[in-house]
Design a protein around this nucleic acid. Sequence first.
DNA 1: AGGTGAATTTGGAACGATCCAAAACAAAAA
DNA 2: TTTTTGTTTTGGATCGTTCCAAATTCACCT
Lengths: 344, 344
Amino acid sequence: MSATKLTLNDVARGCGVSRATVSLVLRGSPLVHAETRARVEAEIRRVGYIYNRAAANLRSRSASSVALVINDLSNPFFAEFAAGVDEALAAVGFVTLLGSTGESVARQQAVLASLVEHAPAGIILSPAEGSDGAAVARVVGDHMPVLVFNRELGGDWDYLVMDNLVGARLATEHLIALGHRRIAFYGGHRDSSSCHQRRKGYLEALANAGVEAEPRWRIETAPTRLEAARQAGALFASDPAPTAAVCYNDAVALGLQLGLIARGRRPGVDFALVGFDDIPEAALSVPPLTTIATAPRARGRQAAERILERMRDPSIANAQHSIAVQLIVRESSCPPPTMHGIPA
Amino acid sequence: MSATKLTLNDVARGCGVSRATVSLVLRGSPLVHAETRARVEAEIRRVGYIYNRAAANLRSRSASSVALVINDLSNPFFAEFAAGVDEALAAVGFVTLLGSTGESVARQQAVLASLVEHAPAGIILSPAEGSDGAAVARVVGDHMPVLVFNRELGGDWDYLVMDNLVGARLATEHLIALGHRRIAFYGGHRDSSSCHQRRKGYLEALANAGVEAEPRWRIETAPTRLEAARQAGALFASDPAPTAAVCYNDAVALGLQLGLIARGRRPGVDFALVGFDDIPEAALSVPPLTTIATAPRARGRQAAERILERMRDPSIANAQHSIAVQLIVRESSCPPPTMHGIPA
DNA sequence: AGGTGAATTTGGAACGATCCAAAACAAAAA
DNA sequence: TTTTTGTTTTGGATCGTTCCAAATTCACCT
């Protein structure tokens, strides 16, 4: 491993031009003579010179990175989102500064403080559960645009959030259209804002259809497959039991499928369910899961585009961008058992 | 959004000390008087000064970031790995520069070239399939330590790779111990190095046990759930058919489970299978999957530790670090059907 | 040959921090 | 009081680049 790094000066000396000329060549300026350019470029390749973008950014007061702070990278939804962000940023020559917080608010503060010191051009933040908007504002200052993804954060921010309410309403309306009347809302924590919104959409659809909402059919679980599988019995604790469930997300829905099977019920035959997110496994489960698609990779690209736009024009006002959602009908959403044999 | 950024000079002027003193305070030097330190720290908080680490790194010729290049972030195995890397780096104040290549060699070159310009202290690379070691060496130069994860890359590198051979041997020996004699190797591409090594371990275990290896039972598929499900029939094309399969990885094993079910066979009852990786779903499938665990998050931390170690002492020679693997026995690996009813 | 305008190249200052040798100050010793 | 010693503070140079105004070279016309 060689210790000394080559600089512009070394290249300049090596081919008998000035530092400034080499700099112009590197930036593709039309000012330099074609022949000089060729000579310089040859020398750059010959000595294996590596551009120091940090020094350039310091002088030109520009930035070439964007910070991306993710609450849970091990969740495929956010991993896909991150891949989308990086894809779109790389395409325009920006580098992604990654920070993952593992849903810890304390680590989120530390991660943001550390990233901000690298002077990124902007920040894309998918907040940890329970984040304090004021604390975030304090640590990031007001020098760069921030885009908040997926969760509400107290205060005035630029948002990119899913249309949770409409998504859950679509899911519920789909089950109602199939003939279900006893529909549960399964999984998620009541205090999470996305869960709150989804429940609201669910209740709205029920109310619109004049279907009664039974509080006992709103069942809380941790938003994980394992917990969802364990709690499945709670659906059948009361009589009459629901015939269908709108699930907080796909992880919960897949867990519930397992829980149903373990209790001798066949999802997609005896019991209908709908997920949320359309994670890759949703299409592959048995039965394939009806769900609400949000295309996380495309959302990542969208987030990157938005932050780039705000970098170009910092005067753009904060706004609330809703992510359109789409119902994907697969086999997990069957008609209610009572309808079997009844001609359509 | 305020335009002007505060510098050391502003802070210094604001509390009547010199630039150098503020710098010492920021770095926690014991040289400054406690009272001065307090005054400076108060001023820093008061004006909301943000440290410019790029400028500091330029002068002190140090780096505070590590580049992480991932071939496929949407694969939970690599996402977990990335989370582990970031976790360990953040713990010592380093920032992760993320680059994802989507298994494209061309994008990998571009991503590496871009990241290298940000002068990271080191690079952790999980190469795209078909990467050319010489091309990678050309673009990263020889100024910083590089750690190659998971795949062989032509040339002399510092490696952190799974013990694929031993893992597959353990899996195969487990099936042999259960009484299986007709054992397939299912999934993966022959030309991928990890698949090659796993096949080798499988063959080794068979040879050691004096069990014949049947070439027709080595079945290639794309390493995805969907493809693995589609090709399941190939296992039963010849007579006698195998009673068990060592699968290339968990995705393939889970796909094969679905394929078996679709053909009326019950995985874990009529047919035994073993996966590789221990992805989160492995424990939750029906039946739960016997597999080889590699703990990707811990491997991420390990990779970060290794690169930090080489940053501290650049004279450390390249080495090949094998990741220990562990057999996790669950219900997908049953005894062969012919053994049913035979007392143990 | 001399003059003109355009094309090309250049040296020094600057970006925001650190390094370092030297200065300023304080306390103790002569 | 002066010297000595130790503690704090400081100004200028510097890291590798870009900016800018000025210098140089070139091509073309009188």
